[in-house]
Design a binder for these strands. Structure first.
Lengths: 208, 208
DNA sequence: TCTCTACGGTCATCA
DNA sequence: TCTCTACGGTCATCA
């Protein structure tokens, strides 16, 4: 809710902020702007804060009631997130930065210091096909050392007897990309590629 | 999974039992039967157990994996149900049978013996309009006494300064309806209508 | 802080 | 143990 929104509020954000459905929002007028992620993609729809507020007040009774509803949804999201399935045997794992290895534990068979950083994002419906690989999608910590996500992926691959591959996306068309940042990322990836290569792991750099 | 399913398994049930999506099930052949709830409504689609099993095995790997997936979903449902919003000030309430009134408590302002039987089914997005009424949808306990759901509705109406109305549906076209049962229900409703009428509450009998 | 679709899950409504 | 739709919420994908 900052000053920078004077052009209007993008649809996705507007729906969440004002607890509105697609149907609700359809009745409002929208101005279109170029999609910042892809100029050729579907246009960004901008809605007027004033109209959104008026609609939300009509729907919920008052801005206070709207705020209550937002709280309710927020809490619901949080508590549902807590009930997510715990570690299970075949699962996609995702970890955060820097930690050391310790004793193996249950679940993914990860040492505690790793496993407490691992969160199962999705339990895949399909069992992994024979010959499948474990893919570590490296978005942060672009390095082959001090990288617990990499350690977790390595373990998982070993457990399955699968190949480990590492892929790093380099986003050129995200809003804040610029030459300086891209250069920094590419230099980091070059070093990581050398380091991983020495350990027999391919690092694939993906420029979408 | 009983013997009575030799005609085939209805779509809704099939999807749940075999963890399949509409898309999945679309690829299968279905035989149509008259909709037992309404002969003029959309037909009931019956799928062959054998085909469903084959598809589920293809999707999940084995019947054991399917069973695991079903367990997962079941548990998820249960734990999400537990995180449902608690009693709040304007809410639709629903209660079960026989109890006595006691001291008022927080939330809906119900006595403990009532409030522990009340479950908030849905927190309405809209604030109740002025002049709205509290509707007690009487599906069980067709009587004006020993009826805690009625007591809860009465309290809620008093708290809001709203009218209380009671409505009872008499379902004629549900699969197990027959003359004897309908007669029993109607007799009960006649008595309840007299009892509630004496207390100034309308009981509306609805035959859909 | 981009949009669209598909997916579970839930629910009210309808025939 | 009926079917369809709408609704949140989540997510991967695409442009």
């Amino acid at each position: 809710m900052s000053k920078s929104r004077k052009d209007g509020i993008p649809k996705t954000y507007a729906k969440i902020q004002f607890c509105l459905s697609d149907r609700d929002v359809e009745s409002l007028t929208a101005t279109e702007k170029k999609n910042p992620y892809s100029p050729k993609g579907p246009a960004m729809k901008l809605y007027k804060r004033e109209e959104l507020e008026r609609l939300a007040v009509r729907k919920f009774g008052s801005l206070e009631k709207l705020e209550e509803e937002r709280q309710r949804r927020q809490e619901r999201r949080n508590s549902v997130a807590k009930t997510r399935p715990e570690l299970d045997s075949f699962s996609v794992a995702k970890a955060a930065s820097h930690a050391e290895a310790g004793d193996p534990d249950a679940g993914l068979g990860l040492p505690p210091l790793l496993s407490e950083r691992v969160r199962v994002v999705r339990s895949p419906a399909r069992e992994p096909a024979p010959g499948s690989l474990v893919l570590y999608w490296m978005k942060a910590a672009l390095r082959g050392h001090h990288n617990p996500a990499l350690d977790a992926a390595r373990r998982e691959a070993a457990k399955r007897g699968a190949e480990l591959a590492v892929a790093a996306p380099v986003l050129l068309d995200c809003p804040h990309a610029n030459a300086r940042r891209v250069k920094f990322v590419l230099e980091g990836l070059r070093d990581a590629q050398r380091e991983l290569g020495a350990a027999g792991v391919d690092l694939l750099v993906h420029v979408p």
